[in-house]
Nucleic acid binder design. Structure first.
Length: 581
RNA sequence: GCACCCAUAGCUCAGCUGGAUAGAGCGCUGCCCUCCGAAGGCAGAGGCCGCAGGUUCGAAUCCUGCUGGGUGCGCCA
């Protein structure tokens, strides 16, 4: 249930009446007619722009249409009054009973309240993290992981059938580097002195892998050439790294539905098939690229390569799919991977990349557009950098100094709930400041705390009520007499609750889970405000002394706030707090 | 040189498929606990929405051009 769509349906119904009355011409397009909360609450509960949108096509004055529409709307029992304002806005006020029954409705539906069917069960694939299997996840990955997971949950809540997917880059040279690094640790486990050259990973997390390899294989690889061990260790090591990464993700509560291996594209004809598909569309040719202007590489020389005509699908230049020596570029398996996603029958694809892959967006969109004949939309969300702070001071990361911060470091220091919430209180395309101290601060300045506090307060009221022998189960609460929830402050809380379903749809449509976090902050603010009003106005307190029935109706409102907070936090992957400590 | 992202209060940031007098928090000023958690609340001051044009009933929002910051740019994935 969504009050805004209900009222919009009413507006449309009344517009049709006006058409029947001959006030408006037939055949008008209502697509742009919106019913929204007015920016200023003084204007009313809901506003529609119908008159302004329809004035031109109806060849009429906005205010005339608005007046006629207002008269029609005033007939509806739900509308207390409808008045024209400004250039032709129509402001509506709703009966208090609407807001009261909304509270009952929230309790009826529980955390399903706000779920939407805008997704219509469409299948959507969200690919995220996709870090190379060469080591543990770091902070940058954390943001992408949290964002992707929350977006997936949000889309699921909005009625999509979502698959979370991880693309394992286990086909390239970086896995060879990993294998060589593990080999060094393996030799080390055999007591040899080893040196880590530039082209190796010196990270200590490989010590254990080398040791395990020794335990399994003994000295079988010692003193052997790469041709003996490279491919085997590559496999062994990348499996180990994926175990590590899976555990990292699990520590944040993230579980992927699909892990797709790049390696599985090679030697199976999948890359060839994808390229063939493009070739059949006339989008593959042999050619020479222009050097990039202004930043000409020293060793630039013209080369003939196999190119994908990505410019025909919105890219700036055509992109190579084969190197001059005939081997695939990185782009080729990526095309094949997306071809696979397209052929798996998804209605839409979402890729989540780090900001450093921004240059990749156009060619990837071009590829999917070409592969699916523009039928499968691909949205690519970039997550910007995370800047770390400690006590307000920038926290420098350096791989060499061993001070690079991993996902595990973050989770261990602040916990998964805080890490997730903080990462989601910013738009994905804005850089994020993450201060290890500030995120644990207990004040209004810290949204995590503030929202959790609101939830904990409500739980506290429920506990208190139970101690006093008042029944506070949802079945009892929703049957309570809610008509005394009539004070402006109480109605305002209910109005905020009414926005939830609408917000879910907006956030899902724009692929912006941060909107959920901001909404929860606003809702928490309403709750805290009402709570404090109880200081001066005892009739607003949730616990009405000696009056169980009155208490139950007040608590019903508080409980419905807790339900929506829990639902919102659920989307963000955060556990609602029972109490603050 | 080109592409993408960002620019809103002193600071950190919201702002819905274009809507009315642009909103929060921090900081600043002043208030509110015999009362369900003051870990909170209320009020006040604080704005050329980077600059300049354009589109229209209407622009922080869309388009173009600038300025400043970030990211990236053919045999690295």
């Amino acid at each position: 249930m969504n009050l805004f769509t209900d009222i919009r349906a009413l507006v449309v119904e009344k517009l049709d009446d006006l058409v029947a009355d001959g006030v408006l011409p037939a055949g008008l397009d209502y697509a742009n007619v919106a019913v929204e909360p007015p920016r200023d609450a003084l204007h009313g509960d809901m506003a529609t722009n119908a008159a302004m949108v329809l004035a031109k096509p109806a060849k009429s004055k906005p205010r005339d249409i608005a007046e006629a529409l207002a008269a029609k709307l005033a007939d509806d029992p739900r509308i207390t009054n409808a008045e024209v304002a400004g250039p032709g806005f129509l402001n509506m006020r709703l009966e208090a009973s609407i807001w009261q029954s909304l509270v009952a409705n929230v309790l009826e539906q529980g955390t399903n309240y706000g779920q939407s069917n805008v997704g219509q069960g469409k299948r959507i694939n969200v690919e995220f993290v996709s870090a190379n299997p060469t080591g543990p996840l770091h902070v940058g990955h954390t943001r992408g992981a949290v964002f992707g997971d929350a977006l997936s949950s949000l889309l699921g809540y909005a009625g999509y059938d979502v698959d979370r997917e991880y693309y394992i880059n286990d086909g390239g040279a970086q896995v060879d580097v990993l294998a060589r690094s593990v080999y060094l640790r393996y030799l080390e486990a055999h007591g040899q002195e080893v040196a880590f050259e530039d082209e190796t990973y010196p990270g200590e997390y490989l010590i254990e892998v080398g040791q395990d390899l020794k335990d399994e294989k003994g000295d079988a690889y010692v003193g052997q050439s790469e041709s003996v061990w490279l491919s085997e260790i590559r496999e062994y090591a990348s499996d180990k790294m994926m175990d590590l990464i899976r555990a990292d993700l699990a520590s944040l509560g993230i579980k992927m539905d699909v892990f797709f291996s790049e390696k599985s594209l090679y030697g199976t004809g999948l890359i060839e098939a994808a390229l063939k598909s493009l070739e059949d569309k006339g989008l593959i040719y042999e050619g020479v690229l222009e050097p990039p202007k202004g930043k000409k590489p020293e060793d630039w020389e013209p080369r003939v390569q196999t190119l994908f005509k990505s410019t025909e699908h919105g890219d700036d230049v055509d992109r190579p799919v084969k190197k001059s020596d005939g081997t695939w570029t990185y782009f080729a398996p990526d095309i094949a991977y997306h071809y696979d996603k397209v052929t798996r029958g998804y209605d839409a694809l979402i890729d989540i990349f780090g900001a450093d892959h921004g240059g990749y967006v156009k060619r990837m969109k071009a590829a999917v557009s070409a592969l699916s004949d523009s039928k499968t939309p691909l949205d690519i969300k970039l997550t910007q950098l995370v800047k770390l702070y400690k006590n307000g001071e920038p926290f420098k990361m350096s791989k060499r100094a061993g001070t690079f911060v991993t996902l595990r470091d973050v989770v261990e220091q602040v916990g998964p709930d805080v890490a997730r919430f903080v990462m989601l209180t910013r738009k994905n395309d804005a850089t994020l400041d993450f201060d290890f101290d500030k995120v644990l601060e207990q004040s209004r300045d810290n949204p995590v705390f503030y929202v959790q506090y609101a939830h904990a307060r409500i739980r506290s009221v429920l506990r208190k009520a139970a101690e006093q022998g008042i029944a506070v189960d949802d079945a009892t609460l929703k049957a309570a007499d809610l008509s005394n929830l009539a004070h402006e402050s109480e109605i305002n809380v209910a109005k905020k609750l009414a926005e939830w379903p609408r917000l879910v749809e907006i956030a899902a449509r724009t692929h912006e889970p941060h909107r959920v976090a901001f909404y929860l902050y606003e809702l928490a603010s309403e709750l805290h405000g009402l709570w404090n009003k109880g200081n001066e106005l005892p009739e607003l307190r949730f616990l009405q002394e000696g009056n169980a029935a009155a208490s139950q109706s007040k608590i019903a409102l508080a409980r419905s706030v807790a339900v929506v907070i829990a639902a919102g936090l659920g989307i963000l992957g955060v556990t609602p707090a029972e109490e603050m400590r």
